[in-house]
Every structure is written in C-alpha cells, then in structure tokens.
Design a protein around this nucleic acid. Structure first.
Length: 426
RNA sequence: GGAAGAGUGGCAGAGCUGGUUUAAUGCACCGGUCUUGAAAACCGGCGUGCCUUCACGGGCACCGGGGGUUCGAAUCCCUCCUCUUCCGCCA
C-alpha cells in the first residue's frame, strides 16, 4: 500500500506509473479521490481531537469540583460533556467511513514502478535483459515431455495425486522424490553460503500476516483457506518469512537481513486451465526455496542485483539454459517496483518456463507491515522488502527431465549428484 | 478440550479499593559535567502513530486485541488471543 504522502508529493510519478501499468485514463482520478479523502480525514481528526481535549479537561474539573463538594457545578459540566460526546460520536462515525473508503482506494493503487520498467501490455513485451546466447539443447524428434518421462521412470504419479487429493497435486516417488529433495537441499545450501539464514516457517498463516504482505484483501481467491480456524495456506514462504518483521523497528546493526526458507507452496490457481497446466507446468502444490531481503532504502537495488546474480548462478550450476526478463508494466506484480523473471528452456515442450521471480517491493509491503528502521539521523523510515524464488522446484524438475534425457535414461547434473547419490535415472 | 492465574514503554517492575501517576522506580541506551583517559558520581534526554505549527511547541490515541459502563478506565464489565500451572488427549 502506498503512503498518501507518496501520492501527495509525487503525484506525477504515480500517474506515470499507473499509465505504465496500462491503467485507463478515466481510472486515474482515484488519486485525486484519495487526496480529497485524506483532506477530509485530517479535518475531521483536527476537529475531533479538540473535542476530546475539551472532554479531558472538563472531566478533570469535574473531579476537583466533586472533591470540593460542588455538586451543582459538577453536574453542569457533566451536561456540557454529554453534549460534546454526542458530537464526538457522530464525527467518529464519519471518520470511520472516510478511513474505510480511503483505505479501500489506497489498496486499489499498485506500487510505483521503477524507471527501468519497460512499457508494455503483456508478457510478450517483457524485456530480455540477459538472453541465452549459447545453443539450446537439441533433442531428437521423439523427445519425451516431462510428464511422460515421469511416468516412464516412475518419478511422479499424477494420477495418484488425483486419487489422493485432486488435479494439480503431484505425488513424487522413488528417484523422483529423491531428486526433489536433492534440489531443495542444494538450493538451501547455496543460499546459506550466500549468507541467508534458514527459516522453517509455519505453512498456515493468520489474517494479519496475509494482509501484511498484501495477499489480502485482493488475492483472497488464490489462497486455500481453513475456515474453521481462519488460517490461510501459504502461497509462498515470502508471506510468513517477511512477516517476521511485521510491526518491528529494525535496529540498524541488523542489516542486511537475508533469510531463506524452503516450504511447499499452495495455490488455488482458480481460473487457469488449458495447455499450460499439463504436468508440472502449473500445480496447486509445489516446493520452493525462497530468498528474502529486508534492507535500508538506499541499499535495496544493490540487494536486488545480488539476488538476481544468486539465482543466475544456481541455474548455471544446474546447467540449464535460462534467460532473464525485466517485467514490463503490463506484467509486473501489483506490489513490485521492479521484477526480474527467470525462465528456463524446457526442451521437449520447446517452452520457456518461469522458475523464478525476483522483486523489490520498496516500501509497498513495509508500509502495510509497519516495518521500519532509524536512519543515521534517528528518523524513522520504512524498510524496503525484496523477495525471490531460488528456486521453484516443479518447473526445474520439468526442464531437468526433458533436457537431460538420453537413450539410457536421464542424466543428473554434476552439482546434484552428491545430493541424489545417483548420476542417472533409468 | 477442561480448570486456575497472568499479560504495563528495550528489559525489569509499581499502579489495578476508577480522578495531582493520563504510567512511578530501577537497569539498559544517548548527550553533558567532572577526568590525562576510563569507571563512578551528578545533570539532562530516552516509545509508536496521527493531527496542528514556517519553527519552538501544542493536541489526540495507544498499558495483549476488540467492545462496553462512567463526566473520567491501565484500574470495573463482556469477548477474543497469548503465556504459565494443573488435568485430559496425542504425534
């Protein structure tokens, strides 16, 4: 959520950002509406505070009058207070309405985009900032897509997943399960070497937490919800991990904060059907190792670069062909200022699959989280929050299986062999 | 799940028979005096959010969350959450 002051002081920038996100001109007036509501809010509060102050002082007077036994005068004062209270009640009612409407509008405004974010309407307009310049893997004509490979080598059983739960809940077994676990451990070890502290967070979160990172209210339908206890299944470990710092004032010596965590991720993916959901391309439950950084405002883009390099290096080590995209205004997430996506080439499907998304949310999340720090002048500032996948497992497995298939099975990349304890799947 | 007790500012800890305590005191922390330097001692500062002010400053709210009683609530009532202890159940 943006601060009203960001809109007030830098309205042009916010407007340009909304245009970059392809907002219709007629919807841009929401900013004026916000400023107007904020003015109303301030006016109401000033009036109300002075009434409250007057109630406070009169109550004190009543106290001393009572002690002196001046009952009549006290009663007169009491009546004055009663009148004020009527007014206060009425005004607070209005303040509530104004605040509600103000928040509602603020929530509808996405984060301000970074200048580097390219214009564009959809994922086709994303800017390739690092293309794959070497040859793409060439597979023979009869190359097998990963869902068939998974079946052939008994690595993943999609039908059993359906039986046990439903579509989109794959069951890993044997070397498939082992490969999954190998990747998790490999990613966690790499993150640890890069200075990230490992976290194993709860997989269910409460409403405050879901609100903190911006999943609520607008992405409500994307999360699984446990009605009996009002918990949400996490769509990514970014949610519980970033919320560690909800309502905190971070001490400056704690920076840089670098956290990593492996968790399963649960996504309802309501409304997405079709070719893309085949196999592991889009599932309701998948494993992911996430990296999170919480930084001072001036350090966040350095941190973003560092995270991008970290992810790139993982893909290098896995020997997977990848490219890096800078998301355009039409594709970038609501809460992000600047996002880099990583896509891996899955050679049998002949498709680029998104395996990581690294974002700087600047103060958009921290405003909601109320996560702050003191700068060198002792001024309280909102932190910048960053998160990135390092990496999402399902699609990595998909491309690993497809790209590394050969006559005698599926070859395991060298870095993983210490983890899998086998070098080939057959 | 049942019973009892408790939740106060970074920590400790008073207040909890409602009104000069709208939060004492100690520790920690920051600044100063003293000192060659340090310690000790002394003096001062020391929460968050919002409103107002060019500024100095002033005001409002917050004592686990929410609601209520009252002229006035940390203090009384209701409700939820959390923690501790005991019982039950259970990896």
């Amino acid at each position: 959520m943006l601060l009203v002051n960001q809109i007030r002081q830098d309205k042009e920038r916010v407007l340009n950002s909304l245009r970059k996100r392809n907002w219709k001109e007629e919807n841009l007036s929401v900013l004026d509406k916000i400023l107007e509501l904020d003015d109303q809010r301030k006016k109401l509060q000033t009036e109300n505070d002075s009434n409250l102050a007057s109630v406070n002082s009169k109550s004190k007077e009543i106290g001393s009058l009572m002690r002196e036994g001046q009952k009549d005068q006290a009663n007169t004062k009491k009546q004055e207070v009663a009148a004020l209270k009527e007014e206060i009640k009425e005004r607070e009612e209005r303040m509530k309405m104004v605040n509600l409407e103000l928040t509602e509008h603020l929530l509808s405004v996405p984060n301000i985009t970074h200048d580097l974010v390219p214009n564009g309407a959809s994922d086709e307009d994303n800017e390739v900032t690092q293309a794959w310049t070497k040859d793409l893997p060439q597979l023979p004509e009869n190359a097998i897509p990963h869902w068939d490979l998974a079946k052939k080598y008994n690595l993943i059983d999609f039908e059993l997943g359906v039986k046990i739960t439903g579509a989109g809940f794959p069951l890993f077994r044997g070397k498939g399960a082992r490969l999954e676990r190998a990747l998790i451990n490999f990613f966690l070890d790499e993150a640890q070497s890069a200075g990230y502290e490992e976290i194993i967070p709860p997989l269910l979160v409460n409403e405050d937490t879901a609100r903190g990172t911006g999943q609520l209210p607008d992405k409500e339908g994307q999360m699984y919800y446990v009605t009996k206890d009002d918990f949400y299944l996490i769509p990514t470990s970014e949610v519980p991990i970033t919320n560690i710092y909800r309502n905190e004032i971070v001490k400056s010596e704690e920076f840089p904060i670098k956290l990593t965590g492996y968790t399963p991720c649960f996504r309802r993916e309501a409304g997405s059907y079709g070719a893309d959901v085949k196999g592991l391309n889009r599932v309701h439950q998948f494993d992911k190792v996430e990296i999170v950084q919480i930084s001072k405002q001036e350090d966040s883009y350095k941190a973003l670069d560092e995270m991008v390099k970290h992810v790139a290096q993982l893909l290098e080590k896995l020997e997977l062909p990848y490219r890096i995209l800078r998301l355009c205004g039409g594709d970038i997430g609501f809460t992000s200022s600047l996002t880099y996506d990583f896509e891996v080439f899955s050679a049998a499907q002949k498709k680029w699959l998104e395996v990581s998304s690294v974002s700087n949310c600047e103060t958009y999340q921290s405003n909601r989280l109320r996560c702050r720090y003191k700068d060198e002048n002792g001024k309280t500032k909102l932190v910048h929050t960053l998160n990135g996948s390092a990496l999402a497992l399902a699609r990595i497995i998909a491309s690993l299986l497809e790209n590394n298939q050969h006559e005698g099975g599926i070859k395991i990349p060298k870095v993983l062999i210490p983890y899998t304890k086998f070098d080939n799947i057959d």
